Simulated assay, not measured.
Amino acid sequence: MRAVPLLSMTGTTVHHMDAFVEMTGTGVASAPPDVVVLDTAVRTPGGSVAEALSRADTAMTAIVGIARERGLAPADLQTTSASVYPQYDREGVSVSGYIAQQSIRLRIRERDLVGPLITAFSESVGNALAIDNISLQIDDVSPLLTQARRLAFEDANAKARQFAELASRELGPVLYVVDSPSPGGGLHAGGAPKREMMMASASADMPVEMGENSIRCQVTVRWAWA
């Protein structure tokens, strides 16, 4: 809480200053995620760069084809990286071959599709398949953000009214509102039940527990005294 005196005097000059009370409020809104983000890759060996790249191209083409057959839209498929690097012998001196890698991010909007997709990928490309990460997201966070901001303003308002009552004062009009960065804010996993990803096996039975994601907002509000 910040308060400024109504008047301050320097010598014979009287400076009229606005008096105010300022509070920061925090709001948290939660909702179940509706998108499973699957980061997957293919890693293929070859005796030459061209051979390794060709095998990676073939494997990734198969993965993209399976994803599209299962209903994923082109906008939900995004290549994230591609690389090729040498392999060395046990002494680390001579090049014994090359490894090519291609990575892709899939945004899966039906959680029950995750297990069957991974199974289909593994059956198609075998040990070339790598699952790098699975995360859960909310496609449109706008409603959550609106709710979190409202709760943050209500929190700041409640604090200001409490201190106004303690000071035997009345709140006047709002002078300004600032949407402040929240430490550790933004979208994160939380709520009850907690988000869990059970990846014991790449099978159609792999459970995906969605849990809840939360978004945190802070607002700083300044009121004049009435």
Rank of each mutant, 00 (worst) to 15 (best):
Val42His: 00
Ala100Arg: 00
Ala148Cys: 12
Leu72Phe: 02
Ile215Cys: 03
Gly11Pro: 09
Ala52Ser: 08
Thr26Ile: 15
Thr80Tyr: 03
Phe121Glu: 03
Arg2Ser: 15
Ala192His: 11
Gly71Ser: 13
Ser81His: 15
Ala100Trp: 00
Met210Cys: 08
Val95Met: 12
Ala100Val: 00
Ser182Glu: 06
Gln102Leu: 12
Ile134Asp: 01
Ile63Met: 11
Arg216Tyr: 04
Val219Arg: 02
Ala56Ile: 00
Val4Ser: 10
Gly184Thr: 14
Thr12Cys: 05
Arg43Gln: 10
Val95Pro: 01
Ala75Tyr: 06
Ser214Tyr: 07
Val35Leu: 10
Asp139Trp: 09
Ala3Glu: 14
Leu171Phe: 14
Leu145Pro: 00
Leu38Arg: 10
Pro45Ala: 09
Val49Leu: 00
Val42Trp: 00
Gln218Cys: 11
Met197Lys: 04
Gln137Pro: 01
Ala192Lys: 15
Ala73Ser: 15
Ser103Gly: 13
Ala50Phe: 05
Met1Gly: 10
Gly126His: 06
Thr61Leu: 13
Ala52Cys: 05
Asn127Ile: 09
Ala59Asp: 02
Arg109Phe: 05
Ser48His: 07
Thr146Trp: 09
Ile138Asp: 02
Leu7Cys: 07
His16Tyr: 11
Phe121Lys: 08
Pro32Ile: 13
Thr146Ala: 15
Arg111Cys: 02
Ala19Glu: 11
Val177Tyr: 01
Leu117Phe: 08
Ala75Asp: 06
Ala158Pro: 03
Val219Met: 04
Val42Ser: 01
Ile104Val: 14
Arg149Tyr: 03
Val125Gln: 02
Arg149Val: 07
Ala128His: 01
Ile138Ser: 00
Pro33His: 09
Glu209Phe: 11
Gly65Met: 07
His188Pro: 01
Glu154Cys: 06
Val4Pro: 00
Ser83Pro: 04
Val177Leu: 06
Asp179Val: 09
Asp139Gln: 15
Met210Trp: 10
Gln162Arg: 13
Val64Met: 06
Ala3Gly: 14
Asp179Met: 10
Ser182Pro: 05
Val49Arg: 01
Arg169His: 04
Arg90Ala: 10
Pro181Gln: 14
Arg195Pro: 04
Met210Gln: 12
